[in-house]
Lab assay of single mutants.
Amino acid sequence: PQEEYKKRAKKALKKGDEDTAREALKRAGLSPDQAEEFIRRFL
């Protein structure tokens, strides 16, 4: 589910792994723009 992928993305970002985070967010159904926004907000 979407929440699970978002959790995964946050874990990846904590490790500084933005590529894995983007992949997880893409799987969560976010557009690339939404994924970038999510990452920017998190960092």
Score class of each variant (00 low, 15 high):
1 P>A: 14
1 P>E: 14
1 P>V: 14
1 P>K: 14
2 Q>Y: 12
3 E>F: 08
3 E>P: 06
4 E>F: 13
5 Y>C: 10
5 Y>I: 04
5 Y>T: 03
7 K>D: 13
7 K>P: 02
8 R>T: 11
8 R>E: 14
9 A>G: 02
9 A>W: 03
9 A>T: 02
10 K>H: 10
10 K>E: 15
10 K>W: 13
10 K>S: 08
10 K>A: 13
11 K>N: 13
11 K>I: 15
12 A>S: 05
12 A>W: 04
13 L>C: 04
13 L>F: 02
13 L>H: 01
14 K>P: 01
14 K>W: 11
15 K>G: 11
15 K>P: 01
17 D>W: 04
17 D>E: 06
17 D>Q: 07
20 T>P: 02
20 T>F: 07
21 A>I: 02
21 A>Q: 00
21 A>N: 00
22 R>G: 02
23 E>T: 07
23 E>G: 05
23 E>R: 09
23 E>H: 07
24 A>V: 13
24 A>P: 00
25 L>H: 00
25 L>V: 01
27 R>S: 11
27 R>L: 15
27 R>M: 15
28 A>G: 07
29 G>E: 03
29 G>A: 03
29 G>P: 00
29 G>W: 02
29 G>T: 01
29 G>S: 03
30 L>H: 02
30 L>E: 01
31 S>M: 06
31 S>D: 10
31 S>A: 07
32 P>N: 10
32 P>G: 08
32 P>W: 11
32 P>C: 08
32 P>V: 11
32 P>L: 11
33 D>Y: 08
33 D>I: 10
33 D>F: 08
33 D>Q: 13
33 D>V: 12
34 Q>I: 05
34 Q>R: 05
35 A>H: 02
35 A>S: 07
36 E>P: 00
36 E>R: 05
37 E>P: 00
37 E>F: 05
37 E>D: 10
37 E>V: 06
38 F>E: 02
38 F>T: 02
38 F>Q: 01
38 F>W: 10
38 F>A: 02
39 I>R: 01
39 I>Y: 02
39 I>E: 00
40 R>Y: 09
40 R>T: 07
42 F>N: 05
42 F>Q: 05
42 F>P: 01
42 F>T: 07
